[in-house]
Design a protein around this nucleic acid. Structure first.
Length: 199
DNA sequence: TTGGGGATGTAT
DNA sequence: TACATCCCCAAC
C-alpha cells in the first residue's frame, strides 16, 4: 500500500485530521510489523488554540518539533503514565498537530496484546487493544524515543488504507481539554461513524 | 529548586 | 467517580 508523502501532512491540522481516518499506521518493531487503522483523531491548531501545547507561541524543547515541518511524530507523556502519538501537521513554522485518539488493530494482534499485558484476546475484545491514545502507544510499543521520527521514513509511517466517505465521518468536540475555555466546544475531533460502518 | 497541573486508563 | 503517578515548565 502507498505510503503517505510529505505533502499530505503540510496542510492544516483540520484537513489532515479528517483525511487520516481510515489510514493505516505502520510501525516496524524489533520483532515484527504492527499495523492499526486510524478511526478517531483530533486537530490541534497551534498558537491560536488554547488546547494546543504551543498556545500563545509557547516554545520549549518539548514543543520544538511542532513548529517544524509536517510529517514527523510528536510523542509526549501524559499524566506521568502514558504516551500519546501525534502527527505533526502544517508547514514549517506553523505549530499544528493531529492527535490519534483511537485505532483498530489490523496486524500483529498477538504482539499488541502482549505489549498491553493481556494473555488472551477474544475476537470481540480486539478493538479494546487500541481504543485510546495511551493504549495505542502501549499496544504497538512506541515511547518517547520515537519523538521527532520522520513519518516519511522506514521505522514508522502511514499508508493509504480505506477510503472513508465524507458522510461516514462525524465531527465532535474534543475530549479532556476543559481548561481550554471556549475551545473545548470546537468540533475538532473526527471519527468514523460506526453506525454505517463495520470494522 | 519547587509545585501545580495534565490531549489517560482502570476499577468501582 | 476516584485515583494512580510523574514529566513538564513557569515561577520563584
Amino acid at each position: 500500500m502507498k505510503k503517505l508523502k510529505r505533502s499530505f501532512y503540510l496542510k492544516s491540522p483540520l484537513n489532515v485530521a479528517r483525511n487520516l481516518l481510515g489510514k493505516y499506521l505502520v510501525y516496524r518493531s524489533a520483532d515484527e510489523k504492527l499495523i492499526v487503522k486510524i478511526i478517531e483523531t483530533e486537530a490541534y491548531l497551534g498558537e491560536e488554540d488554547p488546547a494546543c501545547h504551543t498556545y500563545k507561541g509557547k516554545k520549549t524543547t518539548r514543543t520544538q518539533i511542532l513548529y517544524g515541518s509536517g510529517g514527523y511524530a510528536y510523542i509526549y507523556l501524559i499524566y506521568g503514565m502514558y504516551c500519546c502519538f501525534n502527527a505533526v501537521a502544517d508547514k514549517e513554522g506553523e505549530a499544528g498537530a493531529v492527535f490519534i485518539r483511537s485505532a483498530y488493530p489490523i496486524k500483529g494482534i498477538k504482539m499488541m496484546a502482549k505489549n498491553r499485558g493481556i494473555e488472551k484476546v477474544l475476537n470481540k475484545d480486539i478493538y479494546k487493544l487500541t481504543n485510546g491514545p495511551g493504549k495505542l502507544c502501549q499496544a504497538i510499543g512506541i515511547t518517547k524515543d520515537i519523538n521527532g521520527e520522520d513519518l516519511c521514513g522506514k521505522r514508522i509511517f502511514i499508508v493509504e488504507g480505506e477510503k472513508i466517505k465524507s458522510e461516514n465521518i462525524i465531527s465532535l468536540p474534543r475530549i479532556n481539554i476543559d481548561y481550554a475555555g471556549k475551545a473545548c466546544e470546537y468540533p475538532w475531533r473526527f471519527a468514523i461513524n460506526k453506525q454505517n460502518y463495520t470494522f
